[in-house]
Amino acid sequence: MNRLLTFWGGQASHHAHQVDTLFLGLATLAVLLSAPVFILIPWFAVKYRRGKPADRTHAANRSVWLEVSWAAIPFLATLAFYVWSTRLYIDLYQPPAEALAINAVGKQWMWKFQHPGGQAEINELHVPAGRPVVVTLASQDVIHSLFVPALRLKQDVVPGRYTRLWFTADTPGSYALVCAQFCGADHAVMGGRLVVQTPADYGRWLEGMGTDGSLAAQGAVLFRTRGCSGCHGAASTVHAPPLEGLYGRPVPLADGSVVTADEQYLRDSILLPQAQVAAGYPAIMPTFQNVLGEDDVLKLVAYIKSLANAPPPTKDRDDGGPP
């Protein structure tokens, strides 16, 4: 049945098949619910045309049970589809833990992707078939939206916050990848391809791409060259929170609340350090908003994430501040 909907872009995933099936079901429901209107109105217009003899006795002006039933029955029918579609949607918020993590930055008017091994590409995204992929999306400027019609998926890319899009592409091939949210002058050409490869081909492609080390390693370089280590490094004498073991832990804040140190918190702490100050530390960190791009921040976040299970620093902290 779904071959009917094998349109431009095709179906590159199981999810695409499911959305198409749901859509066909809804289209059928729409036809069934509107059929009485489309059939009866022309029929009545002919049968009860003014001046034409017809039986017009006992024409009711109201009927509560009739009206309640044509309010309730279509609503109940749509509720069944509501459950179906909402379950599919909730899946989109639950990427598997083992998913391949790729970073994406949207900026006027290009897409920049980076693989965990540090391979970067522009306006093309290579992924292995059959393996879940989760793309963390950041925007350098305005709102964009990553849209792959063949996956029947899109996700807005919102400045100031990370959003995620995950999928498992099944069918190797090249598919359109576009921006769906109007983002200024060249919105219409902000696109490229999603290239789905067999795992072996993907592996070869990764090897063929030059890289300056893994994402975390590139983050470590930035950590030193951008001066982060001056305060947060092991040899530092400044009273700054250590970053080893930070990721995923609760962080008490100066205002008394507690947040989890997730990717969003790490990003915000680099770009908007005054927004959430860790308890027990002076609010002295400068913002890196005009120094680091979102892609650099993603590398730093990858580096800090790589320290999640690192041993605590073995230096002589002269402050004795909270760990």
Partner: peptide, 11 residues
Amino acid sequence: MLAVDVHVHDT
């Protein structure tokens, strides 16, 4: 319908 809108939103 959520799952359909994800596909056809902004189209």
